[in-house]
């Protein structure tokens, strides 16, 4: 379980956001948001429910259209989004699910078997995903980030449904991702067990607005 992930080529992403303003309906969620992430950087989004953490991630993911501002460096095919909707099909087996996303997003990461091993559900490949527990499903969703190597991870409450050991795993995955130069933007209520706290910034939403 604790073996290091295979090191592959390094990423050189640069995500910069300036003047970002997003409304939902006529309600202003946040205005004039500004930040910049360099390779290896992590941005933690904090704040109470309903202040727009998920919406900010969706804006970075290119799903929600901002009302003003620029987002540079977040190419559609350079990022992974992980939120409460897993995009997994209960009627497909665990490896079929993973193979599908590998085919869709590009097979430039781990193999399906290696990714399942890495998230600790290596023995469950032939099981239909509908039989997984919510924690196991979350691990499968994490494995999706590993089979296609992409420099930017946008994670919305990634530790939801994970046990203590799963949270440690999440920390290791993000560490390894940063080690290759990857960037992560994480909306979370928990502190992430990251080994290197340097380069971790925190953005608290909902303070001024």
């Amino acid at each position: 379980m604790n073996q290091p992930l295979p090191v592959s080529e390094a990423f050189h992403p640069q995500l910069s956001v300036s003047g970002l303003t997003v409304r939902r309906g006529e309600r202003l969620l946040f205005a004039d948001l500004q930040f910049e992430l360099r390779p290896g950087g992590v941005l933690l989004l904090r704040g109470p429910n309903g202040v727009g953490k998920s919406t900010l991630l969706l804006a970075l993911a290119g799903i929600v259209r901002p009302d003003a501002g620029t987002i540079a460096g977040a190419e559609r095919t350079e990022l992974h989004l992980l939120n409460y909707q897993s995009g997994l099909k209960g009627r497909l087996t665990v490896s079929e699910n993973l193979k599908f996303w590998q085919a869709m997003n590009g097979a430039n990461g781990l193999t399906v078997a290696a990714a399942l091993d890495a998230v600790g559900i290596g023995g469950l490949g032939v099981l239909e995903a509908g039989y997984l527990s919510s924690g196991q499903l979350r691990r499968l969703a994490l494995a999706r980030l590993l089979v296609s190597a992409r420099p930017i991870w946008l994670l919305d409450e990634p530790s939801a449904a994970l046990d203590a050991e799963g949270e440690a795993l999440l920390g290791r995955l993000i560490d390894a991702h940063r080690g290759r130069g990857g960037i992560a933007v994480v909306a979370t209520h928990h502190d992430l067990p990251l080994t290197d706290q340097a380069g971790v910034e925190t953005l608290i939403l909902g303070g001024a607005a």
Partner: peptide
């Protein structure tokens, strides 16, 4: 991706 939607 670059989004610039400041309108004149």
């Amino acid at each position: 991706m670059s989004v610039d939607t400041v309108k004149q």
